[in-house]
Simulated scan of single mutants.
Amino acid sequence: MKTHREIAQQLDLFHSEPQGPGMIFWHPNGWRLFQDIQQHIRELYLQYGFEEVRTPQFLKKELWQTSGHLAMYGEDMFFGGDPAGEQDYALKPMSCPGHILLFKRGVHSYRDLPVKLFEFGLVHRNEASGALNGCLRLRQFTQDDAHVFCAWSQVKHEVSQFLERARQVYRQYGYQQLAVKISTRPEAALGDEALWHQAEHILMEVCRDESMDYELQVGEGSFYGPKIELALQDSLGREWQCGTIQLDFNLPGRFEVAFTNAAGEREHPVILHQAMYGSIERWIGMLLEVTQGALPKWIHPLPAAIAPVNEAAAEYADALAELLKAADLPVMTDHSNCSVSRKIKRFHQLKIPNILIVGEKEVSNEQVALRRGKAVTVIEKSQLIAQLLAFRAI
């Protein structure tokens, strides 16, 4: 079994440098994979009524003091300041306070709820150097960070929709086993204990309604509310914690966030903090280890490669490459003097699923020899794009 770092080197995806511990240098193939995964979840959030936003990375400490992160999470944060040297700012470790400030900009009625925001938030956490592990444990990473501002009466429906999205996404990546864990009130918790019990009961009730067995993790909740954590199991029985939804009834009060209810009174909303991947970088690291580099065909960053047999086929190979790029199909062409078998071996090392072989016969007949695994099929040039797009479909 190769590690995700070894596979990343094999597929030319990313690397790390001593000058940036816990941070990733993305290569073209890796960044394309990252963006495709990001776009996939973006389309899903939009489908469910979320709106994409962007908030600052460097915010005053007073914000994190209000949220409670400074007291509860300060040891894991990075701090900086102005030229005078005051350490009055912090790099955000998560996006929720920024989304709360966005919500506060408007005057909201109960008719406006739920308000759904999401962001691909670049966050920083001061992890110990000994804990860093490639993509799986980083100091800088990107969260698919989403928040739903809603009334208590809407919580069950929104949690249920989150679980529905999770099952849809994970199945598209080939995962079938999903473990559900509910984390309850920790010792260092904010807010009223009765509200904690109410929130925990709602999470358990939704899981039962969705026929999802769950395990209780007593005392493992966030300081501002209980949460559901989703873990995926791979073919080796390893468990990977990914998605999470946290039911927060504390931060709305600390930030004085409110909406006008049906009786014309001000009422605090509930905030549902949620992420499907958790960290896109960690999701990629996990995916590489689970698949050992044989990525799902619809997400592969380099779905095709062209092997010209000789110089006479070089111009035709370049024309094919332009045709694929115009159809938004990334492709590489090997114009080296190596034999076709050597080129194919190189493409196999890169786990490229579609190998296009072209020689004088293919040039004269405007055809392509399409190789998938050990099977080779000769197809018309005019059919190539349709074949590859069908192969890439989810």
Rank of each mutant, 00 (worst) to 15 (best):
residue 101 L to H: 07
residue 137 R to T: 13
residue 48 Y to V: 02
residue 42 R to T: 10
residue 172 Q to N: 12
residue 93 P to M: 04
residue 137 R to A: 02
residue 104 K to H: 09
residue 105 R to G: 07
residue 108 H to Y: 13
residue 52 E to L: 10
residue 42 R to P: 01
residue 98 G to C: 10
residue 71 A to W: 14
residue 65 Q to S: 13
residue 161 Q to S: 12
residue 180 V to H: 14
residue 113 L to W: 04
residue 126 N to P: 02
residue 47 Q to N: 09
residue 91 L to G: 01
residue 183 S to V: 08
residue 121 G to P: 00
residue 51 E to V: 02
residue 103 F to M: 11
residue 51 E to D: 07
residue 105 R to W: 09
residue 111 R to H: 14
residue 180 V to K: 05
residue 72 M to D: 09
residue 103 F to L: 03
residue 105 R to K: 15
residue 79 F to Q: 13
residue 176 Q to K: 12
residue 164 E to A: 14
residue 86 E to P: 02
residue 120 F to T: 02
residue 108 H to P: 04
residue 53 V to S: 08
residue 68 G to M: 11
residue 168 Q to K: 09
residue 40 H to C: 05
residue 160 S to Y: 06
residue 43 E to G: 12
residue 153 S to R: 03
residue 125 R to P: 11
residue 130 G to W: 01
residue 168 Q to T: 15
residue 121 G to H: 08
residue 164 E to W: 13
residue 69 H to A: 09
residue 183 S to D: 09
residue 124 H to Q: 12
residue 108 H to K: 13
residue 92 K to H: 05
residue 174 G to M: 01
residue 113 L to I: 01
residue 127 E to Q: 12
residue 162 F to D: 02
residue 141 F to W: 06
residue 65 Q to L: 12
residue 86 E to G: 12
residue 81 G to A: 13
residue 87 Q to T: 04
